[in-house]
């Protein structure tokens, strides 16, 4: 089980710095990532996998030239997002994070499948930390749309880049 713990990183361009323009079709498994500045990561919705998401966002933020404090903030914010979702996840659910770097910031959509329609608990210390770190954070819940009676719980987060002179 540890050998294939489902860390699926799909990026159409590992180094998206400048010059390269033409978007190649994504060849990685899973849903195709339709443009070069998006990265989707799917792991088992387990606490031990949070460090994978932290590593990914840390790397993305570093490449996107965020400053050291913002990188720390983003790693912390992503960890708080993912830990609140992991707490809600059904057994054997996946945690999926879609990261997108933009010219002026980084956004994330994270989701798990849950039996609980009430969504993430927003009265927690973790949520307060999260709200302080991100420019915007929005939870949402919708029916999974199949006959399992489960829900897709999402958290959308965005953090802008501090502009340096």
């Amino acid at each position: 089980m540890r050998l294939e713990r489902g860390v699926g990183v799909s990026t159409s361009r590992p180094d998206w710095s400048q010059s390269e323009v033409a978007a190649e079709p994504a060849t990685a498994a899973g849903e195709p990532v339709d443009e070069p500045r998006s990265v989707e990561v799917r792991v088992a919705a387990e606490p031990a996998q949070l460090s994978v998401m932290r590593a990914v966002v840390g790397d993305l933020a570093m490449r996107a030239d965020f400053d050291v404090d913002s990188i720390a903030d983003l790693r912390l914010a992503v960890d708080e997002v993912c830990s609140s979702l992991v707490r809600l996840a059904t057994a054997s659910a996946s945690l999926v994070c879609r990261f997108r770097t933009e010219d002026d910031g980084l956004s994330l959509q994270a989701e798990v499948t849950s039996k609980d329609p009430s969504g993430p608990r927003t009265g927690t210390f973790s949520w307060r930390v999260l709200s302080a770190l991100a420019d915007s954070v929005a939870p949402s819940v919708e029916s999974a749309g199949d006959d399992t009676g489960t829900y897709v719980v999402r958290i959308d987060l965005r953090k802008g880049r501090t502009v340096h002179e």
């Binding site: 089980m1 540890r2 713990r5 387990e46 606490p47 031990a48 949070l50 460090s51 992991v86 707490r87 809600l88 996840a89 057994a91």
Partner: peptide
């Protein structure tokens, strides 16, 4: 609510050094 998965985690970390 988190109990089952944390037990799972304990079992897994015993056989793997990949966790935090």
């Amino acid at each position: 609510t988190f109990d089952s998965s944390s037990q799972l985690e304990t079992a897994e970390s015993a056989e793997s050094a990949s966790g935090p």
